[in-house]
Amino acid sequence: MKQRTIAKKVELVGIGLHKGVPVKMVLEPLEADSGIVFYRSDLGVSIPMCPQNVTNTMMATVLSKGEAKISTIEHLMSAVYAYGIDNLKISVDNEEIPIMDGSSIGYCMILDEAGIRVLDANRKIMAIKKPIEVKDGDKFVRIEPSQQTIFDFSIDFAHPAIRQQSYKFVFSKQGYKEEIARARTFGFLQDVNYLRSQGLGLGGSLNNCIVLDENGILNKEGLRYKEEFVRHKILDAIGDMAILGMPLLGSYVSFAGSHKLNSLLTKKILEEVDAYELVEETEEVAIMELVKEFE
């Protein structure tokens, strides 16, 4: 299991969901053990991706270093994690990652264009050894020991188009592209004015978001999946957990989780050093044997 980066430089221009301004994004390969590094090309500031650099989780996950920040990284990082990319430079000339169509399928397409280069260094796997949980009332996110990487999410909205939804995703790259990547972010028409008063959602539209009024969905094309809402929550969770900087071997379980709770979970995992084992192995079988010892 070797580390990976992309095979060639790729770039795109898109609109930021919350600020509504054009953003040029460039993805470039990095060598082994470099990690994921964000770069504000307009400011000349690098921001390494790690839980400690998450400074805001209101409606999006935001990384900061000093006055420089990069917002709405979760959809891109979800795709990067799914493709098993360990080392990558992500440059943007503004403070937000382009929203694309509100899902991560566009990022999957650009990663397919970039290709994958396997590096001559072993990957480190974070194998979970004991349950770690963060709660907020009845809302929670939890990571548990498992022989598979699993994302199991439930939501409950008092809206006729959503109500109770649950989805369990056993992680694989192909499964991600088929089951998760096309799920779009969603929002409520009644919240638009408030969000915009807070400087958020300025780039949102029916082209990059599922919009709901009191009765149903305003998007004429309807949903892409029956459980698109909860599947998008899984997409977000994968992106937020990717901020740990290495593949997870464990089962993520959540009810009504959020960027805030995900951020608190990643920080709590790192604080409790007996909760995980960093494994560097060339054979997946060896990792499976290690996990069995934890159970």
Results as ranks from 00 to 15, higher is better:
R4W: 06
V10E: 01
E11L: 01
I15C: 12
I15D: 02
G16A: 05
H18N: 05
G20V: 05
V26I: 14
L27E: 06
E31S: 12
D33H: 13
I36E: 04
V37C: 08
D42V: 07
M49Q: 03
C50A: 15
P51T: 11
Q52E: 15
M58D: 15
S64T: 10
S71R: 06
S78R: 06
V80C: 02
A82F: 03
A82S: 14
I85H: 00
D93S: 01
E96Y: 02
E96R: 04
I97S: 01
I97E: 02
M100P: 10
D101C: 09
G102Y: 08
S104F: 06
G106H: 04
D112C: 08
I116N: 07
R117P: 01
L119N: 10
D120P: 08
K124P: 04
I125S: 07
K130H: 02
K130L: 05
P131Y: 04
P131N: 01
V134T: 02
K135Q: 09
F140E: 00
F153L: 04
S154N: 09
A158S: 15
R163S: 12
Y167D: 00
G175K: 08
E178V: 11
E178K: 13
E179I: 01
D191N: 15
N193G: 11
Y194W: 13
G199R: 09
G201T: 02
I210A: 06
E214F: 11
L218R: 10
K220L: 14
E221K: 14
L223P: 04
R224M: 09
R224A: 09
E228A: 12
F229H: 06
K233W: 07
K233V: 05
K233M: 12
D236Q: 08
G239H: 02
M241I: 15
L244N: 10
L244Y: 12
P247H: 07
L249E: 04
Y252R: 11
A256Q: 14
S258V: 03
S258P: 04
H259K: 00
L261E: 06
L261S: 05
L270P: 02
V273F: 12
A275Y: 01
A275V: 03
V279Y: 02
T282N: 15
T282F: 07
E283Y: 06
E284P: 04
E289N: 14
L290M: 13
K292M: 08
